[in-house]
């Protein structure tokens, strides 16, 4: 295994900006799965297009790498690109695809606590339904904070919002989930560590 595999994102970005294509390969391997999971979690209608979205993301990373500023984390930068590509794809999609079953493994069990002995599969299904009804801006922070477990600063960099706005949206997302869960007869609290 080459040393380049263990290098930090910032160093790989620097190598790529100097024209070293191997660095792009490493970055793709490193971010392919997290980004695919993020797109799956955030955009149900994009699932059949994930490969295209990822291809666009990495091509943009390649072409715009000299725009990357180490003042922000590479992870936030690449998530921002993925987010923008996804939003652009959502805008272009006029026909709404049918919802696919929510994968259990997309929701960590540490995410929430309940009072009752509800089955995990059932909770997941409910959470899926709640997330589907959530306004887009709240869903953005919900996925990034509770499913991707990004910190507030990184979420701000991804969505290009300031920390206060992110905090407010996260609070609203939690309230939304709690309210909607209550309507379903559940006492479901999102854990925000």
């Amino acid at each position: 295994m080459d040393d380049i595999e263990s290098e930090a994102d910032v160093d790989l970005a620097k190598r790529l900006s100097l024209g070293e294509e191997r660095a792009l390969g490493v970055l793709i391997r490193r971010y392919q799965e997290p980004l695919a999971r993020y797109v799956r979690r955030r955009c149900y209608t994009c699932r059949s297009e994930i490969e295209d979205i990822l291809q666009d993301v990495f091509l943009r990373v390649f072409s715009h790498i000299r725009e990357f500023d180490p003042g922000m984390s590479f992870s936030a930068w690449i998530y921002r690109i993925a987010h923008n590509q996804m939003v652009s794809r959502i805008r272009k999609t006029t026909v709404r695809a049918g919802l696919e079953p929510f994968d259990d493994n997309l929701i960590p069990s540490s995410l929430f606590r309940t009072d009752g002995p509800t089955e995990m599969a059932e909770l997941t299904r409910h959470l899926h339904a709640i997330q589907e009804r959530m306004p887009a801006k709240l869903r953005d922070v919900f996925v990034l904070r509770f499913l991707e477990e990004k910190d507030y600063g990184e979420i701000g960099d991804i969505l290009k919002e300031n920390g206060n706005t992110v905090a407010t949206r996260i609070r609203r997302a939690r309230e939304f989930v709690a309210d909607e869960a209550q309507k379903l007869g559940l006492n479901l609290i999102l854990e925000d560590s």
Partner: peptide, 23 residues
């Protein structure tokens, strides 16, 4: 190199995708 990275590197060559200069 996995499929996607190979695919993307091939795409950059096939589409003549260039890195945008810093300036």
């Amino acid at each position: 190199m996995n499929d996607l990275s190979e695919q993307i590197l091939n795409a950059t060559r096939a589409r003549h995708v260039k890195q945008i200069p810093a300036y």
